[in-house]
Amino acid sequence: MGIFGGTISNLERGLAFSAAKQKTIAQNIANVDTPNYKAKSVSFNEFLSDAKKSTISANRTEQKHMNFSMQASTSGVFDYKNFRYSNNGNGVDMDKEQANLATNQLYYNALVDRVSGKMNTLQTVIKGGSR
């Protein structure tokens, strides 16, 4: 475990999820008038299970080197195949997408605030505390 007990890595995963969700919402909004476009969404459970399954490993060139393992980027994106919102077959509900966009922005800002707080704590420790 790291200095903060894995908090930074959890926040990093949360930020990756928020970025994937932001990208998906932006694609939906951009395709609001595209005929037969099906709205996409990002499921946190899917995102998390994909992250647990996918790892990348590297070969050690020296026995004294530490094992290397990191997670590959995952999407967790799915679409609503049978959902149709408008007559042209488009499945994007603009009101819902804008609400999702606002919710995701709040989530992202909260995560960034927590990361900033952890970094400030680390900076205080490095400087030797407040004097």
Score class of each variant (00 low, 15 high):
Asn88Phe: 04
Asn82Trp: 09
Phe47Trp: 10
Asn59Met: 11
Gly76Met: 04
Lys52Gln: 02
Gln123His: 03
Asn59Gly: 01
Met70Ile: 06
Asn31Phe: 00
Tyr85His: 14
Ile126Met: 09
Val125Asp: 12
Asn67Phe: 05
Ser75Gln: 13
Ala19Met: 01
Lys127Gln: 12
Lys64Trp: 07
Thr55His: 08
Gln123Cys: 00
Gln71Thr: 04
Phe78Ile: 06
Gln22Val: 00
Ser49Met: 03
Ser18Asn: 12
Asn45Phe: 08
Asn59Lys: 15
Ala20Thr: 13
Met119Ile: 00
Asn100Ser: 09
Phe83Cys: 05
Thr74Pro: 02
Arg114Tyr: 04
Ala39Tyr: 02
Gly14Gln: 02
Ile3Val: 13
Ser49Gly: 03
Tyr85Gly: 03
Val42Arg: 02
Ser116Thr: 14
Asn104Lys: 03
Phe4Pro: 03
Asn88Met: 13
Asn45Pro: 13
Thr34Pro: 04
Val115Ala: 01
Ala51His: 09
Asn45Glu: 15
Asn90Lys: 14
Met70His: 07
Glu12His: 03
Asn36Lys: 14
Met70Thr: 06
Val112Asn: 13
Lys23Ile: 00
Ala20Met: 15
Val92Asp: 08
Ser116Leu: 11
Tyr108Trp: 15
Asn59Ser: 14
Gly14Leu: 06
Phe83Leu: 15
Arg60Ser: 03
Pro35Trp: 11
Glu12Trp: 11
Lys52Ala: 11
Ala102Leu: 11
Ser54Ala: 02
Gly5Leu: 01
Pro35His: 11
Asp93Pro: 05
Pro35Thr: 02
Tyr37Cys: 08
Gly5Thr: 12
Ala51Asp: 11
Ser86Tyr: 11
Ala19Pro: 05
Ser54Leu: 04
Asn10Phe: 01
Leu122Val: 12
Val92Gln: 12
Leu111Val: 02
Asn120Trp: 01
Lys96Phe: 11
Ser41Gly: 12
Val32Lys: 07
Tyr107Trp: 07
Ala58Ser: 15
Ser130Phe: 04
Val125Gly: 03
Asn90Arg: 10
Val77Trp: 02
Ala39Ile: 01
Asn67Arg: 00
Met1Asp: 13
Val32Asp: 08
Asp50Lys: 02
Ile56Cys: 07
Asp50Ser: 12
Phe68Leu: 00
Gly128Ala: 09
Asn45Arg: 07
Asn67Glu: 09
Asn120Leu: 11
Arg131Gly: 12
Ala16Ser: 08
His65Tyr: 14
Val32Asn: 09
Gly2Cys: 06
Pro35Gln: 06
Thr24Lys: 06
Thr61Gly: 15
Phe4Val: 07
Leu11Gly: 03
Arg13Val: 07
Thr24Gln: 09
His65Gly: 08
Asn87Gly: 08
Ala20Val: 05
Gly89Val: 01
Lys53Cys: 01
Gln105Arg: 07
Arg114Asn: 05
Phe17Arg: 06
Ser57Ala: 09
Asp93Thr: 10
Asn82Cys: 05
Asn59Asp: 13
Ala26Gln: 11
Val92Ala: 07
Asp79Met: 12
Ser49Leu: 05
Phe44Arg: 15
Ala26Asn: 14
Ala30Gly: 12
